[in-house]
């Protein structure tokens, strides 16, 4: 029975996300509103983690499968890119590597600088 109840709660929050998307005129998907709603509910204690934990662990584990259908759709959209296909691929490769590197390096730099500060403080 617990799986049904957990699924019910998750579907409710997904639906509430869709309601918010309908009401707020921003290009933000229902899933992001839902994520923020669920996080708020957990943080405020309105919803206990055990009430959704098992089903959410299952859904997150099978998440990569959910991208397969859309990714296979690439076989149809290639033609629309026509003459600029190679340039687009180069742009995607360069930009993805650089973005991943920069965001990771900046995050790591700030973390280490702050840790150093706390260490100095404890030494003093």
């Amino acid at each position: 029975m617990k799986y049904i109840k957990q699924l019910l709660i998750i579907l409710c929050i997904s639906f509430m996300g869709e309601v918010l998307k309908y009401l707020i005129p921003l290009p933000v998907p229902a899933s992001i509103y839902g994520l923020l709603l669920l996080l708020t509910a957990l943080l405020t204690g309105v919803l206990k983690l055990e009430k959704i934990k098992d089903v959410s662990v299952f859904l997150i584990e099978i998440m990569p499968l959910m991208f397969i259908p859309a990714a296979v759709g690439l076989m149809d959209s290639w033609s629309a890119l026509g003459g600029i296909l190679v340039q687009v691929i180069i742009t995607v490769v360069v930009s993805t590597i650089v973005v991943m590197g920069v965001s990771g390096v900046v995050t790591q730099m700030i973390i280490r600088r702050e840790e150093q500060k706390t260490n100095e403080r404890t030494v003093l």
Binding site: I10, I32, G34, L59, V72
Partner: peptide, 28 residues
């Protein structure tokens, strides 16, 4: 592709609830 997608779309259907569930590791 559309023939494949007719069945495979049920995998994509779960994407919204799964994304909502990403709040769980975030909360932890």
């Amino acid at each position: 592709y559309n023939v494949y997608y007719e069945g495979a779309k049920y995998l994509s259907y779960l994407l919204t609830p799964a994304t909502v569930c990403l709040a769980v590791p975030l909360y932890e």
